[in-house]
Design a protein around this nucleic acid. Structure first.
Lengths: 149, 149
DNA sequence: GCTAATCATTAGCCATGCTAAGTATGCAAA
DNA sequence: TTTGCATACTTAGCATGGCTAATGATTAGC
């Protein structure tokens, strides 16, 4: 065993990262229940708010679910007055989904709550540790994007 | 702004970490469908396999769901021959849930598939980047545990 | 103008979360 | 001891969110 703080193997780093990612999400997601809508609706609405008006297929693809699943989610969001569903005049098979003021508002509030929760967690750390997490996040982002090629 | 690679704010690090954690999980979870059981069953079975025999309440708490939810999940696992449900002689209100050979086998196979997927993702990185992820994982682990106190 | 492809929806299945209520058992105090 | 409360699990019933298959409406291509 060469080093004092011995090297972690790829497997160990991977599994540990996996486990900690699960727990981080679980922790942060607890803030989401305050939005009063389910997680799938919250996530889809977030895409509509930040990703501009888009079609049902585009939204389904962004959320990695099938169109019928997204159709039902959008139906619920429309019923709750959080998004609008309008006809697309260029292609009348298609619809244009856009956020209402109410939808935009609750997503920004939700994002704000998540941020507060994350900040509360991360504020225990020193600057060097924050830098480490920032770098780790960039590394993850890179390999997760690379896999699509 | 002092530094060349400017400092990331707490908010930015947090939100970016959150987003990347979501995508990491989404990627790795795709391997889980090969187990042929749903994610809740897979996760519960994993706890039984690695966490030894335990009661329904203990399992529900470990998985952060209510007892009725876990009762139904265990019922499915029993039906599929992946766990055993035995009487507890010391307290006949309670049950003892333990893994069968079949259950243990598919969890180890699933874990192995997840590891392979993670290794495939992480093997694109150099040693220094791996160390960074390892350290980040330990940091996350520490703050996630600390919040319980 | 037909035919095929595409976009969205409907219908119906399953899994997984919940609460409320029921059953069986254990425990403690009258 | 018995009475009554607490605990462990199950059952029943509801909501959400995933899926496939099939339908309807519209567009695109030959």
């Amino acid at each position: 065993m060469p080093s004092k703080l011995r090297e972690l193997s790829l497997e160990e780093v991977g599994m540990s990262l996996h486990s900690n990612a699960i727990h981080l999400l679980r922790d942060v997601r607890t803030e989401d229940s305050a939005m009063g809508i389910g997680p799938a609706q919250a996530s889809a609405l977030s895409v509509v708010v930040f990703g501009g008006p888009l079609s049902l297929n585009e939204l389904a693809e962004a959320e990695q679910v099938r169109p019928p699943t997204m159709s039902r989610i959008v139906e619920a969001l429309v019923r709750e007055g959080l998004v609008r569903r309008e006809a697309n005049r260029d292609d009348r098979r298609s619809i244009i989904i856009s956020s209402t003021d109410k939808g935009t508002k609750i997503i920004h509030e939700g994002r704000s709550r998540r941020e507060k929760r994350l900040i509360k967690l991360l504020s225990q750390l020193d600057a060097d540790e924050i830098r480490c997490l920032g770098r780790a996040s960039r590394i993850l982002s890179r390999i997760l994007v690379a896999k699509h090629s």
